[in-house]
Simulated assay, not measured.
Amino acid sequence: MPVRELTPTGDFSPRAPYELIELAPCSPTIGAEIAGVDLARPLTPELFQELNRALLEWKVLFFRDQHLTAHQHRDFARWWGVPEIHPFLPKADLPEVVRLSRGADSPAVENVWHSDVSFDVTPPMGSILRAVHVPDVGGDTLWADMAAAYDGLPGAMKSRLQGLRAVHDFTQSFGKRLSGEDLTRAQEKYPPAVHPVVRTLPESGRKLIYVNRIFTSHIEDLEPEESRELLDFLFDQARHPEYQCRLRWRPGTVAFWDNRATQHYASGDYYPHTRLMERVTIIGDRPA
């Protein structure tokens, strides 16, 4: 594999000011804390436009002290599209709201870099996660900017990745909990999906790495050893702090991330304490 080249990837040109929100960046390229917004109240079209622009610019937005009902959580997500009903995860008070409960009887399993539901033909455009109960210390979530990670690749690697397509398959994760007819039915409903290794965001034209360790099984038309070597190299790009931001949760904190442009990692360092989160994901389009 070629030597990594860490290069500055932030867009440090002046951005247009925001008029309806207060925005504080968490890093040069990814993550921003938003103030001046009550997500329990319906958005206006003008506020939606500002939040959408902030999401595209910063890839993950953090909101503090947002105490939402499941209906308010879902309704906020609907401004960006149709909420997904996850095929495998437990639900909260609405089918569109997933409940992620971890503690002494259910250790964390989200402590692997990944992009939500990339095994679908149309993976989520975004995910909105709300903290219900969190430990006093631990349980942080980290996000990686996969567009900045792509920008940091050597030129020869970028050329090598052109036109490559990778297979994403739920059986590597959720499938391990199923067997027999349940697994067969799930495989019929969710066959492996094939996506570009390098995805392009339609709004900006930015290219980004779109493979992840949980769901990506192999790269088409490569020998197994070459596929595994290349995937391991690409998976590791999310692990570099230069491309990351980190959130320490409090009850009522909401994180909204562009699931296309990021990967995330939920630290499992709080065992055996309890961490209860609720999530809505928004159906996206076919990656290109």
Rank of each mutant, 00 (worst) to 15 (best):
L20G: 04
P28C: 06
A35H: 04
E33N: 04
L47I: 05
F12W: 10
F63W: 02
P25K: 09
H71F: 05
A40Q: 13
Y18D: 12
P25R: 07
Q66I: 05
D65Q: 13
D11E: 11
H67Q: 15
L43S: 04
L23R: 05
H71Y: 04
R78H: 08
L51P: 02
N52S: 13
N52A: 09
F48D: 15
L55M: 15
F63R: 00
T44L: 14
V37S: 00
E33A: 05
Q49E: 11
A35T: 14
P45K: 03
F12M: 14
D75T: 04
S13E: 12
A32Q: 03
L51C: 09
P14F: 04
T69E: 05
A32D: 01
P45V: 09
S27I: 00
E33Y: 02
L20Y: 02
V60D: 00
G31T: 07
A70W: 04
A24P: 02
L55W: 15
R78G: 12
E57W: 06
A54E: 09
D11W: 04
P28H: 03
N52E: 11
V37I: 15
V60C: 01
L20Q: 08
A70K: 09
E46M: 08
L68I: 07
P45N: 13
E50W: 11
I30M: 01
L68P: 01
A40F: 02
K59S: 06
P25E: 12
L51H: 14
R74Q: 09
A77S: 15
T69N: 13
A77H: 03
N52M: 08
R78D: 03
R41D: 03
P42N: 13
H67S: 03
F48S: 09
R74M: 10
T44W: 08
W58M: 08
Q49H: 14
P42H: 14
D65E: 07
K59D: 09
L23H: 10
L56Q: 08
A16V: 06
E57A: 15
I34C: 00
L23S: 15
P45C: 06
F62S: 01
S27D: 00
H67P: 00
D75N: 08
D75R: 14
